[in-house]
């Protein structure tokens, strides 16, 4: 048995924001909500239950406590009024999982073609990829911890996928 735990986090709010990520108003609105810096391409800046995830050249995912989502959407709406953007509460459209324990990279590597070696994937990075048959985004809030989001409609599938992948334990592909 591997010592990997899979937990579904249900109290996290998520806002998908699309717009011009080089725009100062957008960047400062985001950092005002997350309390951290604005991430570069391919990076995630997360602390506690707040954070900014770079999803694509025109999209960030804002993480924050669920009860703050309504207020945050209003803040974004007024900060970005007049500029072309889209801000949507996707808290209930996404499922968030936390993986903790040993053999994280090995376990996930069974499910994804993405390179999860420490050289390309570590704390601070985000990788949108495929877990078996569905899309997911992975990031590491800290060493020995991986958070991932997928569509809520496939959350049960992903949960079982992760549990089955964890059952076999590490295979020694990545150093522990």
């Amino acid at each position: 048995m591997s010592e990997l735990t899979v937990t579904r986090l249900t109290d996290r709010g998520m806002i998908s924001l699309r717009g011009d990520l080089s725009d100062d108003a957008l960047r400062s609105a985001c950092t005002g909500l997350s309390g951290g810096d604005f991430p570069e391409a391919g990076h995630a800046i997360v602390s506690g239950d707040k954070g900014l995830l770079w999803m694509s050249p025109d999209e960030v995912l804002i993480l924050l406590p669920q009860e703050e989502v309504g207020q945050a959407l209003e803040t974004l709406g007024s900060a970005l009024a007049g500029s072309h953007h889209l801000a949507v509460d996707v808290s209930d459209a996404r499922a968030l999982f936390r993986l903790e324990g040993s053999g994280l990279r090995d376990t996930l590597q069974k499910l994804t073609p993405a390179d999860l070696s420490p050289a390309t994937f570590g704390p601070g990075r985000i990788r949108r990829t495929r877990l078996a048959q569905v899309a997911a985004a992975l990031w590491m809030p800290g060493e020995g911890q991986v958070d991932l989001v997928c569509f809520r409609s496939v959350a049960d599938y992903v949960q079982r996928l992760l549990e089955v992948a964890a059952e076999g334990g590490p295979v020694g592909f990545h150093p522990a």
Binding site: A41, G42, S56, P57, P113, A114, D115, T120, T129
Partner: peptide, 8 residues
Amino acid sequence: PCCGERAD
């Protein structure tokens, strides 16, 4: 070329 990831 858009996000810089090496994609399979």
